Computed example of a mutant assay.
Amino acid sequence: MLIPESVRTHWWRGALVVVAVVVVCFSTSPFGGLFGLVPLVVWSTLAPSRRSGLIVGAVLLALLAWFVLPGALGLAGRWVPAPIEIYWLHTTIAAVVCAIGARRGFVGLFLLVIAGFIVTGGALFAAYESPPGCEGVAPGPAQLRITRDFNCGSHNCWGVLETTGDRAPEVMRDYLVARHFTPAPTINRVPRYCRTTGLLVEHEVCVDVWPLGPAAARVEWYVN
């Protein structure tokens, strides 16, 4: 069977997008992952040659993996991008890389950056006074019986896990430490753990573990 000339010439463009799709499948935010695909899709149409296309494409794939995989693995630290940064920071860096590699399409890349900031604003507005996501806390340890809820107060909402089971407070604390939460100063003598991410904008999630006895604990988490 003869392979069309266009396929033999441009197969690498589709291959870059396929690999990027595999990477974003690990994203903790489906929409964030899909938005992270956009620069690579744009590059697959802008790339002037296979050589530059694959070189710049590899850089873009590495950049996408950096913004997706550490969060998916529950890692923490200022080298781990915050979830919101995939919209504006990743898009901006990727657009600059595309512009350097293609030396054309500047207007479209500029509009892509603007779109990234607009989506960032929309994401921040949607998150305002909304319950936090899983943030590495939910669903909780498999060996405990857990019910999940949320509460809201003045300009803030927080997630709640009601946990029961053998040594529930200790199990919950071990679970958080394994997900790179570190002990923080207590509030009202309640054990508190926090995890920070973000390259340029700090994203801190804190968890209060309220012991309710040897076999029960109430867990509350919130984004500072």
Score class of each variant (00 low, 15 high):
His10Leu: 14
Val59Glu: 10
Leu212Val: 03
Leu34His: 05
Glu204Ile: 12
Thr182Pro: 13
Ala217Glu: 09
Leu199Glu: 04
Asn188Lys: 05
Val207Glu: 09
Ala99Gly: 04
Arg173Pro: 04
Val223Pro: 02
Arg78Tyr: 10
Trp88Met: 10
Ala62Met: 14
Ile3Trp: 13
Phe125Leu: 15
Leu46Pro: 03
Trp210Pro: 05
Gly108Ala: 02
Asp149Ile: 03
Cys98Thr: 04
Val42Thr: 09
His10Arg: 14
Ala15Asn: 07
Val119Thr: 08
Leu34Phe: 14
Trp88Cys: 06
Ala82His: 04
Gly140Ile: 04
Pro48Arg: 00
Gly57Pro: 01
Glu85Leu: 04
Ala215Ile: 13
Leu64Ser: 07
Pro211His: 00
Val96Asp: 10
Ile55Asn: 06
Ile55Val: 14
Leu54Asp: 06
Val17Thr: 08
Ala58His: 05
Val96Gln: 09
Leu40His: 04
Pro48His: 02
Ala138Leu: 01
Arg167Trp: 12
Ala115Thr: 12
Phe67Thr: 00
Cys152Phe: 02
Leu60Glu: 08
Val107Asn: 06
Val207Met: 06
Gly36Pro: 00
Leu75Tyr: 14
Gly153Arg: 11
Asp174Gly: 14
Gly74His: 07
Trp79Phe: 14
Ser130Asn: 12
Gly53Lys: 09
Gly101Leu: 10
Ala215Gln: 14
Leu200Thr: 13
His203Cys: 07
Leu112Asn: 04
Gly74Met: 08
Leu2Asp: 11
Arg148Lys: 15
Leu212Pro: 04
Thr164Ile: 12
Thr163Ala: 15
Val97Asn: 06
Leu34Tyr: 09
Arg13Asn: 01
Gly136Glu: 00
Leu2Met: 14
Val68Trp: 00
Asp208Ser: 10
Arg148Glu: 15
Val24Asp: 02
Leu75Trp: 14
Val59Phe: 15
Pro30Val: 14
Val38Pro: 01
Leu64Thr: 07
Leu144Phe: 08
Gly140Leu: 01
Thr9His: 13
Thr91His: 08
Ala168Trp: 00
Arg148Thr: 15
Leu40Ile: 15
Trp221Gln: 07
Thr120Lys: 05
Ile55Gln: 09
Gly33Cys: 06
Leu40Trp: 07
Leu111Asp: 10
Phe26Leu: 11
Gly71Ser: 10
Asp149Pro: 07
Asn224Pro: 15
Trp210Cys: 11
Thr91Gln: 06
Cys157Tyr: 01
Leu112Thr: 05
Pro39Met: 00
Asn151Asp: 15
Leu111Asn: 03
Leu46Asp: 09
Pro139Thr: 07
Val207Ala: 13
Thr163Gln: 11
Ala94Tyr: 08
Ile3Asn: 09
Arg192Glu: 00
Phe110Cys: 12
Ala102Ile: 02
Val205Phe: 10
Glu170Asn: 12
Ile55Gly: 06
Asp208Ile: 01
Val113Lys: 03
Leu46Lys: 08
Leu61Ser: 11
Cys206Pro: 11
Tyr175Val: 03
Val209Thr: 00
Gly77His: 12
His155Arg: 15
Arg103Asp: 09
Leu111Glu: 12
Arg173His: 03
His180Leu: 04
